[in-house]
């Protein structure tokens, strides 16, 4: 890892009077440990499911399904990471995903212009994100309240868009997004959904670690008052992160529409926001803002997908899946706390 990027991942125990602080090497080790924090959990789960499920888990076919299942949550989680890094929260991503998927389907039905569904969905998401961001940045309203409101209101709009019915398009022009796969090596095929998720993670990483905007996001999350006094236009940062979250929810809408050839304003994306938040938290990002990494979110999203897939494979009923998933999330984070004792900042 390089110098600047070490920032936000490391949250060492604050030494009261240690003088010189931690050495660069210790910091490096710590930041790697923290970024990879949940990786062992991911591996243990994968291996456990493999042997519990008659060695059916770690096969190319199944892993490709896991990747597909993780993809949408990864994209939503990436947006959520931006938001949570500023100390905010976006509860509306599931609803925005549904509304965007409706847009995608509606535009996809235009004869000859079906591909317009993709930009339509992205703009729908961006629009709702901008509204969230404006209310939070200019209206100075708490993010939890604003996005709780839009969670409900946008859900209603999504239903309205399809007259509360499911929209189908069997000839969806961008169906490849949800169903095709790319052969990267003989016998190794990666679903397009997973490719999109990886690209989103890479771009997010670049923005957070290699651009001024990224540092400002960490700064605003770490100490908003100091950020303002340092000349950072805090409103711009807030507007940006909620717009990104909204637009990525829009992208999630495209992905989900492409996978299903259909969208339904009522059911689509229900409680997706909770999975996205869980992925971010599993990834070690601090709820109070200013600390966290996008790689953690990727690992968090993979853990959630592995759990869903693995539990089904092993034959655990749907009801028990909820219970186990919840407990694993709490347990994993508790474990992380114990491991990094002293940092107690989240």
């Amino acid at each position: 890892m390089s110098d600047i990027s070490e920032d936000s991942t490391a949250a060492g125990p604050t030494q009261p009077s240690g003088g010189a602080g931690l050495s660069a090497r210790q910091l490096q080790v710590r930041s790697i440990v923290q970024a990879l924090g949940m990786l062992p959990v991911l591996f243990i789960l994968a291996i456990a499911f493999h042997y519990l499920g008659d060695e059916r888990f770690l096969t190319p076919q199944n892993l490709s399904i896991v990747a597909q299942q993780a993809a949408i949550n990864t994209v939503l989680g990436a947006g959520m990471t931006f938001v949570i890094l500023t100390g905010g929260i976006d509860l509306s991503v599931g609803s925005i995903l549904a509304a965007s998927a409706m847009s995608a389907l509606i535009f996809s039905l235009l004869p000859g212009w079906g591909m317009l569904g993709i930009p339509a969905a992205l703009l729908t998401g961006l629009g709702f994100g901008l509204i969230n961001g404006s209310l939070i940045a200019f209206g100075k309203l708490p993010p939890f309240i604003v996005t709780l409101g839009s969670l409900t209101a946008v859900r209603g709009l999504a239903r309205l868009m399809g007259n509360d019915a499911t929209i189908f398009n069997p000839d969806l022009p961008f169906a490849f997004i949800g169903n095709a796969a790319i052969t990267i090596a003989p016998g190794v095929r990666v679903p397009v959904l997973a490719v999109i998720a990886i690209v989103v993670i890479l771009i997010s990483w670049y923005v957070l670690r290699r651009t001024v905007l990224g540092i400002w996001i960490y700064a605003v999350g770490g100490n908003p008052a100091a950020a303002r006094l340092s000349g950072i236009k805090v409103w711009r940062i807030l507007l940006f992160v909620y717009s990104v979250s909204g637009m990525l929810a829009g992208l999630g809408g495209v992905m989900s529409a492409a996978r299903l050839f259909a969208a339904n304003g009522l059911q689509l994306g229900q409680s997706y926001e909770l999975d996205a938040i869980a992925a971010v938290i599993l990834g070690g990002t601090s709820f109070v803002g200013g600390i966290g990494s996008i790689w953690g979110t990727l690992i968090g999203a993979l853990i959630i997908a592995v759990l869903s897939n693995g539990l089904t494979l092993v034959g655990v009923s749907d009801i028990w899946q909820f219970i186990v998933k919840g407990l694993v999330i709490i347990g994993a984070v508790a474990l992380d706390r114990v491991r990094l004792q002293g940092s107690a900042r989240t």
Binding site: D3, I4, T211, Y218, A219, N223, A226, A227, I291
Partner: peptide, 28 residues
């Protein structure tokens, strides 16, 4: 009101100038 305690010394030092130092497109 001053420091970003979770960020590095270097970033804290550079915070007032990273905007003007940045290359096109806001790249650090």
């Amino acid at each position: 009101l001053g420091l970003f305690l979770d960020l590095s010394c270097g970033t804290n030092i550079n915070l007032g100038v990273i905007g003007s130092d940045a290359r096109a497109g806001g790249i650090l």
